[in-house]
Design a protein around this nucleic acid. Structure first.
Length: 128
DNA sequence: TCCTTGACTCAGA
DNA sequence: CTCTGAGCCAAGG
């Protein structure tokens, strides 16, 4: 996967989809985490990238192809960022894969969070 | 061109 | 735990 320009929306989207497709059933990931897998554009520090990346990822997921498991991508709080019917649908899809929600509609990221392909993510890389 | 909005996130109260 | 404000980028009116 090659990511050349920060403005290359189409290319960025494809990378996001590609990474999203790697999320195994029964696991979840966050917009920020997916963004962390993708190299920061030149001229932007990590902090800026982390902030804008999450939104780009959200936009990419929103317009993803049918073969992308969009329901496995939630926000950093372990919650579903949707409202109405779509919220219920996403929750059902996750529960069908064995992902449990607590009484506050949240997923325990310490248990279900996907840590990526080999090198993966760790707290230092996420800047936490 | 300016302004608003968004499937975001973090730090602080 | 919830609510705010600030920070970022892009798209659309």
């Amino acid at each position: 996967m090659k990511y050349t320009s920060p403005r290359d929306k189409a290319g960025y989207y494809q990378i996001v989809w590609q990474v999203a497709r790697l999320i195994p059933s029964g696991k979840v990931s966050t917009y920020g985490d997916l963004a962390a897998f993708i190299p920061a554009p030149e001229g932007k520090d990590y902090r800026s990238y982390r902030a804008f990346g999450a939104r780009w990822v959200a936009g990419a997921i929103k317009n993803c192809p049918d073969d992308v498991p969009w329901h496995r991508v939630i926000n950093s709080q372990g919650r579903i960022s949707l409202r109405g019917a779509a919220h219920e649908q996403q929750r059902k899809l996750l529960e069908a894969e064995g992902v449990a929600f607590d009484e506050r509609d949240r997923v325990d990221l310490n248990v279900y969070r996907w840590i990526g392909p080999d090198t993966g993510l760790d707290d230092s890389r996420l800047g936490r």
